[in-house]
């Protein structure tokens, strides 16, 4: 995802929908292991380098979603798996990412996701949270105020239709 994904030149909320190519879940046996580092132990923590796609999200106890798994991290986790620190499970195709961009005129506009959840409350003290939103299991994630929703693939169509009823313009892209 590049900087252009953060731009919205329209007057409507826009949802950009992306299917990540390589997606995995890391499950750790011992919370103290810290295979992904100390910061990863914090509930709701997210790792992302500036301008880069998200690296991992700590969305459940002892579980991390790695939506864009690249070789260095993959190799690290496979090594940790052989040391019996945890299990790396391939889940490509399970999650879809919907990034919500506010309209260019953003004066006190209500977030469309506010129709289904208290946006400020959910992410008040965390960067990601696994919740049920519009009856769909999702992970909401904040990137410096810009929200993305990771929704399970089978729910994607219903979720996007719901966004359309909230006057969100939907754009579907390949990664």
């Amino acid at each position: 995802m590049n900087a252009a994904m953060n731009e919205n030149l329209t007057d409507a909320w826009t949802a950009i929908c992306i299917t990540p190519a390589v997606c995995a879940e890391w499950s750790e046996f011992n919370p103290a292991s810290g295979v992904l580092g100390e910061a990863a132990k914090t509930a709701g923590a997210v790792s992302r380098k500036p301008g880069e796609p998200v690296e991992w999200m700590h969305h459940a106890p002892n579980r991390w979603l790695l939506p864009n798994l690249q070789p260095p991290l993959r190799d690290l986790l496979l090594t940790a798996e052989t040391r019996q620190c945890g299990v790396l499970t391939q889940v490509s195709g399970k999650w879809q990412c919907i990034r919500l961009l506010p309209p260019k005129t953003t004066h006190k506009l209500r977030h469309p996701l506010g129709a289904g959840m208290p946006v400020e409350l959910i992410l008040e003290q965390r960067q990601c949270a696994a919740i049920v939103l519009f009856d769909c299991p999702v992970i909401v994630e904040s990137d410096d105020g810009l929200l993305s929703v990771w929704v399970e693939s089978s729910y994607l169509n219903s979720f996007l239709e719901m966004l359309k009823t909230l006057d969100v313009k939907v754009i579907v892209k390949a990664d």
């Binding site: 195709g93 129709a115 519009f134 089978s154 994607l156 169509n157 219903s158 979720f159 239709e161 009823t165």
Partner: peptide, 18 residues
């Protein structure tokens, strides 16, 4: 009902072969 009207009543899950 809030958003649970019409299409929003409940999600309909689709397989990749829909």
């Amino acid at each position: 009902s809030g958003t649970r009207l019409g299409f929003g009543l409940r999600p309909a899950r689709l397989t990749a072969l829909d």
